[in-house]
């Protein structure tokens, strides 16, 4: 392991002589940061997955203005989009935990007593609320011609929804959804306030353990940036694939070339 040894010495040398930041400490605790990143990714993407699945029927009910259902869903999305995520997590974690009735109910163990579940429930409901609203917008803006064409082909309402309206709405919602994914990732730092060791939690642990101000937060920041970079990249690929028909053409049209010649 000769090269690694020398890299370590290099870090040690820099940390001791030139840098105000202790790179050795960060290097020694990298495995903790990786574990923290896994917790962050797990929370973010599980919440997005479950929240996304919940959002689809809610968005359909909203878009088609189902009586009773639509106003009720509107109240839910208004509450969850209109209040800070931190407050929602505190309500589930500290708020519910104060009631003896909740502590004695079947939900306490293993669900509401665990910080992981409290955070998961709050994140899922939060992202489901946001996703419902912009998916509703995307469904409402389905071009009327597409629906008419589907009807003319004799598709049932269910087939129209499954084969025409939803695929088209998902495509239109894609750019907005990339923001939602990144916001959910950013919001996941709230997990560290209720004792979960996510990325920020590990950063705070490092700072707290060694009484530092920068090392833990800077390392967490680099990890978050790397994750955001990968998310952005994945969405760019997805947009290329699914929204390709909306991009300006890259090659000149054959006709245009002939005119130039």
């Amino acid at each position: 392991m000769e090269p690694e040894q020398s890299f370590y010495d290099y870090l040690k040398n820099i940390s001791e002589t030139q840098s105000p930041i202790d790179f050795v400490l960060i290097y020694d605790n990298l495995d903790r940061f990786v574990d923290g990143a896994l917790v962050t990714l797990q929370l973010t993407f599980l919440a997005l997955l479950v929240g996304g699945i919940i959002a689809v029927p809610l968005a359909i009910a909203r878009a088609y203005r189902k009586p009773f259902l639509s106003p009720a869903i509107r109240v839910y999305t208004y509450v969850f989009c209109g209040t800070p995520l931190l407050v929602q997590v505190y309500l589930f974690y500290f708020g519910l935990g104060q009631f003896t009735a909740v502590q004695e109910s079947f939900l306490w163990d293993p669900i509401l007593s665990s910080p992981w579940w409290c955070v998961m429930i709050a994140f899922t409901l939060n992202t489901a609320a946001y996703t419902t609203e912009f998916l509703r917008g995307a469904i409402e803006t389905t071009p009327h011609g597409e629906v008419e064409a589907a009807k003319a082909c004799g598709m049932s309402p269910y087939a129209r929804m499954r084969l025409v309206v939803l695929p088209s709405a998902f495509r239109r919602a894609l750019p907005a959804y990339s923001n939602e994914v990144i916001f959910t990732l950013h919001g996941s730092v709230i997990a560290s306030t209720v004792t979960l060791q996510d990325l920020l939690g590990v950063g705070r642990w490092l700072n707290g353990r060694y009484y530092l101000a920068y090392e833990g937060f800077l390392t967490a920041m680099v990890f978050y940036m790397a994750i955001v970079f990968m998310i952005t990249f994945a969405f760019r690929l997805a947009e290329k694939r699914f929204l390709g028909h909306l991009r300006p053409r890259e090659t000149p049209q054959p006709g245009a070339a002939r005119v130039a010649a």
Binding site: Q98, Q103, S113, T193, T195, R204, W205, G208
Partner: peptide
């Protein structure tokens, strides 16, 4: 790990 000692007591009482 908690931010304040009050939070520690709250979770001790809650049974967490």
């Amino acid at each position: 790990l908690y931010n304040t000692q009050e939070d520690v007591f709250a979770d001790l009482v809650a049974g967490r």
